Amino acid sequence: MKNVLLPTDFSENAWNATKYAIELFKEEECVFHLLNTYTPAIVSSRFMGTSMGHVQESNVRDNSEKGLKDLLGKIKKNFNYPKHSFKTISSFSLLVDEIKDIVERVGIDMIITGTKGASGLDEVFMGSNTVRIIKSVKNCPVLAIPQHFEYASPTEIAFATDFNRFYSLSELQPIIDLAKTFKASLRIVHVQYEIKALTEIQMFNLNMLRKYLNEVEHYVHTVSELNSVSKTLEVFAKELDIHLLAMLNYQHSYMEKMTREAVVKRMAFHTQIPLLVIPELGMNTPLKSSSNRENAVMD
């Protein structure tokens, strides 16, 4: 059974990510953990009595719990997949801290969150909740869903890599699972500033990658960089009608390069398609936490 974490602030883009998640796993046994965190507004005067603070906390807690109850009703009204169940978590906590705790405590397989704003990935990389989650959660993949993206079965998946790093099977497993589930073609895309032959290390890593993907239809594409890595991947995704872009997040990866590109270069790159970011796990790290306790989670 899959455990999927859905952080929500009850916005439209959070609802869009929730819809995507439910459709993506409609054929799988899944527990969706709906999370809303809250912190009361800071009291403006240090002379205000503590009772006012308690009232404020009570109000935001009530709003959080009511929001989750309403969200659950909305889900049940719009979806009826028998393999799915839902749990709600209302927490007086900072979002990223609570997510890290739940990932460990429950054994979350994937975090699915919405991204918003006309500036797309530029906003994601400039300090939104999504990028804070990606940078902070070291043992769980994060799938970011664009605000207006309508669900489409991911039958074309792109995996961006430069072959400079050896990938472990545990790191590739989320991509392999999706490709198998949807009988997808996996497009391994290598962006080069100037086209040249792969080094011995790159060839070794490519060959190992192909061994891991032996049960998945896959192709290798080498493309010239257009202005920036992000712009190149955007054009590639459009031309091949890619439904989902996957990357691993590690030092010197494309993901890191994109976060460091000058803002003016990133402006054109919007989150047109879902972005799956997989943390660096290493050789022997299981993707899912061994702990499956679900205490402190309420229906």
Rank of each mutant, 00 (worst) to 15 (best):
2 K>M: 13
3 N>Q: 11
7 P>A: 02
8 T>A: 00
8 T>G: 04
10 F>L: 01
11 S>N: 07
16 N>E: 05
17 A>E: 10
19 K>A: 10
20 Y>N: 09
22 I>L: 15
23 E>F: 06
27 E>S: 14
36 N>L: 00
37 T>K: 02
43 V>Q: 12
43 V>L: 13
45 S>V: 12
47 F>P: 08
47 F>T: 15
50 T>P: 13
53 G>L: 11
57 E>F: 05
63 N>V: 08
66 K>H: 13
67 G>T: 03
67 G>Y: 03
68 L>T: 02
68 L>W: 02
69 K>W: 01
72 L>M: 09
78 N>G: 05
79 F>K: 07
81 Y>W: 09
81 Y>Q: 04
84 H>K: 09
86 F>G: 07
87 K>N: 09
87 K>R: 10
93 S>E: 06
93 S>Q: 04
93 S>N: 10
95 L>M: 10
96 V>L: 08
97 D>M: 00
99 I>D: 00
102 I>A: 07
102 I>Q: 04
102 I>E: 02
104 E>M: 11
105 R>T: 08
106 V>G: 06
106 V>P: 02
107 G>P: 02
111 I>S: 03
113 T>P: 02
119 S>G: 12
123 E>P: 06
126 M>W: 12
126 M>I: 00
126 M>F: 12
130 T>S: 13
135 K>W: 12
135 K>V: 07
139 N>F: 06
141 P>G: 03
142 V>D: 08
143 L>H: 06
144 A>K: 01
149 F>H: 08
151 Y>Q: 07
152 A>H: 14
155 T>Y: 11
157 I>K: 00
160 A>V: 02
160 A>L: 08
162 D>K: 02
167 Y>F: 15
169 L>Y: 11
169 L>I: 10
169 L>T: 09
170 S>E: 10
171 E>C: 01
173 Q>E: 10
173 Q>W: 11
175 I>L: 04
177 D>V: 03
180 K>S: 10
184 A>Q: 04
185 S>Y: 08
190 H>Y: 09
194 E>W: 01
197 A>I: 03
197 A>H: 05
198 L>Y: 04
202 Q>C: 04
203 M>T: 15
206 L>Y: 03
207 N>F: 04
209 L>A: 07
215 E>T: 15
215 E>S: 11
218 H>C: 07
219 Y>D: 00
219 Y>W: 07
221 H>I: 05
223 V>E: 08
229 V>F: 09
231 K>S: 15
233 L>R: 05
237 A>M: 10
245 L>D: 06
245 L>M: 13
246 A>Q: 13
248 L>S: 00
249 N>A: 12
250 Y>S: 05
251 Q>W: 01
252 H>F: 08
252 H>C: 00
254 Y>E: 03
256 E>H: 12
257 K>P: 02
258 M>W: 02
259 T>W: 05
259 T>M: 15
259 T>D: 08
262 A>C: 04
266 R>E: 05
270 H>Y: 15
279 P>G: 05
279 P>K: 03
279 P>L: 03
280 E>W: 13
282 G>R: 12
284 N>W: 13
286 P>E: 05
287 L>E: 06
289 S>E: 13
290 S>E: 14
290 S>L: 14
291 S>E: 15
293 R>Y: 14
294 E>G: 11
296 A>H: 10
296 A>W: 06
298 M>G: 07
